[in-house]
């Protein structure tokens, strides 16, 4: 075979593998979306689980007060997504409140202050945390952490949003840390030298020069962390108590969108309204993360252009 033919064959292989990733993504969306569509289109499904039933308060009997409830297998199935949405948001917010300061603090310490031998220890250790299977983190949160947190804070429930959020945070930390640390170390040394040569302290240099210069990357790290937190399933399934209650209190148990799919899809009647609602939830999650990543990326791009001055 001629060299030219080999070149184009290699190029074709690479082209196909790149396209496969995109095709895969589109197919996943198409098939999940297809199963979710009856929630919007099928008369039969809409009667039991239409959009108004998913998002507006419902009273199962005219005599009872209106409420938001997720009870898909009770005699009168109730499909309100609001407990699941608030549960997801609660777990994500707690996780990010716990993980972002720790991860970003560790990243700044590792890239700006730690001597290189210490950095060689910190970075792989935190990145190793990403390799722990989430079921192990969930198990740890369920069996060990929950008791300590309950005793420490004197809570009514062992499994609650704080416990689930912190466990989730453990999964978020390594992602945010790695990306943020890379962004910080990618800041040109000349900025640091320039600042130090003006008599700035290392802390002033880190805070006022390096962090702003690395901000696009740090923001991207946070977006990735958010995506991980909102989509993570096993940890919240195990550590949150899994009760679909509508509550904003971090000391109450919660149930997330992802955990609901994981817990119920295995036993749901194929083709039932419940089945289609679970796929609808999946579509929502997909759109959530897709939109955050897209917006995040656009924002990062703008920031980068502003820093480099190619756009005013």
């Amino acid at each position: 075979m001629s060299r030219r033919a080999a070149e184009s064959a290699i190029e074709a292989v690479i082209r196909v593998s790149a396209s496969l990733a995109i095709v895969g993504l589109v197919l996943i969306f198409v098939f999940i979306g297809k199963e979710a569509l009856p929630v919007l289109l099928s008369q039969e499904v809409r009667q039991e689980a239409g959009l108004s039933r998913l998002f507006l308060p419902q009273s199962p009997e005219p005599s009872e007060p209106k409420e938001f409830a997720w009870q898909p297998i009770s005699a009168i199935p109730k499909y309100s997504l609001l407990p699941l949405l608030t549960g997801t948001i609660k777990a994500t917010v707690v996780a990010l409140l716990f993980a972002l300061p720790l991860a970003l603090g560790a990243a700044v310490f590792s890239s700006e202050f730690a001597p290189s031998w210490l950095r060689e220890i910190i970075k792989p250790s935190i990145e190793l945390l990403a390799g722990i299977p989430s079921v192990v983190l969930g198990f740890f949160a369920l069996m060990v952490m929950a008791t300590y947190i309950q005793d420490l804070l004197g809570l009514d429930y062992r499994l609650n949003a704080i416990n689930a959020g912190i466990a989730l945070g453990l999964a978020v930390i390594p992602i945010v840390f790695t990306v943020a640390e890379d962004a910080l170390t990618a800041v040109p040394q000349s900025y640091r030298e320039g600042s130090i040569a003006l008599g700035a302290t290392p802390w002033q240099t880190a805070w006022r020069v390096v962090l702003p210069a690395a901000f696009p990357g740090i923001f991207a790290a946070c977006v990735l962390g958010f995506g991980r937190a909102i989509g993570e399933t096993m940890i919240v399934l195990m550590a949150s108590g899994n009760a679909a209650v509508l509550s904003l209190s971090p000391t109450d148990p919660l149930r997330t969108l992802s955990a609901t799919i994981a817990a119920e899809l295995g036993e749901v009647v194929h083709g039932s309204p419940h089945y289609h609602v679970l796929f609808f939830i999946g579509t929502l999650l997909f759109l959530f993360t897709f939109a955050t990543n897209l917006l995040g990326q656009a924002f990062v791009e703008r920031l980068k252009q502003r820093l480099s001055g190619s756009r005013l």
Partner: peptide, 26 residues
């Protein structure tokens, strides 16, 4: 004893903030 470097290394912030940086940190 201040220093100017081989490659211009203004910080990736505005012109004003660059000049104000030194006085501000001091």
């Amino acid at each position: 004893v201040g220093m100017v470097f081989q490659r211009p290394n203004p910080f990736p912030i505005s012109v004003f903030q660059n000049v104000a940086y030194g006085p501000a940190i001091h």
